[in-house]
């Protein structure tokens, strides 16, 4: 018999690990990956591979040579950042730009704060927003979705996103009703993915399937997605009811752009979201309101990334202000 092990209780543990949690998120993104490959062909494959490999390589180089710590590139977190970054760029983005995005995402967004668990902002979004501001042309030139392996993406046939069409149209003084014919049928096409945009944003349905998987596996809780969804619906609904010619209906907001991706995969990122259920609800609601503010009143057609980053910055405050309900605090008899 070996020496007995002595430790404090508990002596049994839930069969969980950081790796399992992280790879659970990766598995949840597989449906969306498949859909993006279906619609954007080899371009999507290239973007996904380059992004994931670049993120892992950057993390490896930083951990091995800069901070000389243990190398943890296979814990899954770098893969998530890579996939999310790829989901957030157009399918024809040049490789070099994508690599720059990966360097910013991992280097600035994650490792500069101390690595996994310590980053204030969602690393993928940091990379995405950096690219959006630095390379606006490349980042907003969308390839037209084509069925699998059709033509090479370099054809430079570009189509605007539904949100872009709407924003420019409204700015030009047209009403929503006039613009509707130009927009895809969102209930059918938008759900399944036939819309222009970043590769991961195209199919709301695939994203929801992955989200359901994460909810069932209890990787994420319902608090952030539900409060985000509700606040978007309520806020955009109020605007829509006040003037249907100027504002689109809430369903359009929900299924277009990066909304589903943001709600289920980026706002729920556990590292950069609040810890307590109450805080998560506040966080989700804040994200929703800021998103609609940017979409409706801001200069950019899309506001999900900015909204989540802004709310990320408030997380330490939210954590301090919204504590869980302590047992025995409310004395009632």
């Amino acid at each position: 018999m070996d020496a007995l092990v002595v430790s404090g209780s508990p002596h049994v543990h839930a069969d969980q690990s950081v790796k399992k949690v992280m790879y659970g998120v990766v598995y949840a993104m597989i449906p969306a990956m498949l859909v993006s490959i279906y619609f954007f062909g080899l371009g999507a494959v290239r973007v996904l591979l380059v992004s994931v490999i670049a993120c892992m390589a950057v993390e490896y180089i930083i951990q091995k040579y800069l901070i000389r710590s243990e190398v943890t590139i296979f814990d899954g977190s770098a893969i998530i950042t890579g996939v999310l970054l790829a989901f957030n760029v157009p399918g024809n983005l040049p490789t070099l730009i994508l690599v720059i995005g990966a360097i910013v995402a991992i280097g600035v967004g994650k490792m500069s704060f101390g690595g996994l668990g310590k980053n204030v902002f969602n690393p993928a979004l940091v990379g995405r927003v950096f690219l959006l501001i630095s390379f606006p042309v490349q980042m907003t030139t969308w390839p037209v979705p084509k069925p699998l392996f059709a033509a090479a993406i370099t054809d430079a046939i570009t189509g605007p996103t539904p949100l872009g069409i709407l924003k420019e149209g409204l700015a030009a003084g047209k009403t929503v009703q006039e613009l509707m014919p130009q927009l895809p049928d969102y209930v059918g096409n938008l759900m399944t993915g036939y819309q222009g945009g970043c590769i991961g944003e195209v199919s709301a349905l695939a994203l929801i399937i992955g989200a359901a998987y994460m909810l069932i596996r209890r990787i994420i809780t319902w608090h952030v997605p539900v409060s985000y969804l509700l606040s978007v619906v309520i806020f955009s609904g109020i605007l829509w009811l006040s003037d249907p010619t100027m504002y689109v209906d809430p369903l359009f907001h929900l299924v277009t752009g990066g909304m589903m991706l943001g709600i289920f995969y980026m706002a729920t990122d556990m590292v950069s979201s609040p810890m307590s259920p109450k805080g998560q609800i506040i966080f989700g609601a804040g994200c929703g309101i800021i998103t609609i503010l940017i979409r409706v009143f801001g200069a950019y057609p899309e506001g999900v990334s900015f909204a989540i980053l802004i709310m990320n910055a408030f997380v330490p405050l939210i954590d301090r202000a919204f504590k869980p309900v302590r047992f025995g605090e409310t004395v009632k008899r």
Binding site: G115, G117, K118, M270, S273, P324, V325, R326
Partner: peptide, 25 residues
């Protein structure tokens, strides 16, 4: 089974909060 699992950094998943029966963090 007697040894604990390898220790990792906190990923702020918040499960300890939802598990605590006393509502602590």
């Amino acid at each position: 089974e007697s040894r604990r699992v390898e220790q990792n950094t906190c990923i702020r998943c918040g499960r300890c909060i939802s598990a605590c029966p006393m509502g602590l963090e």
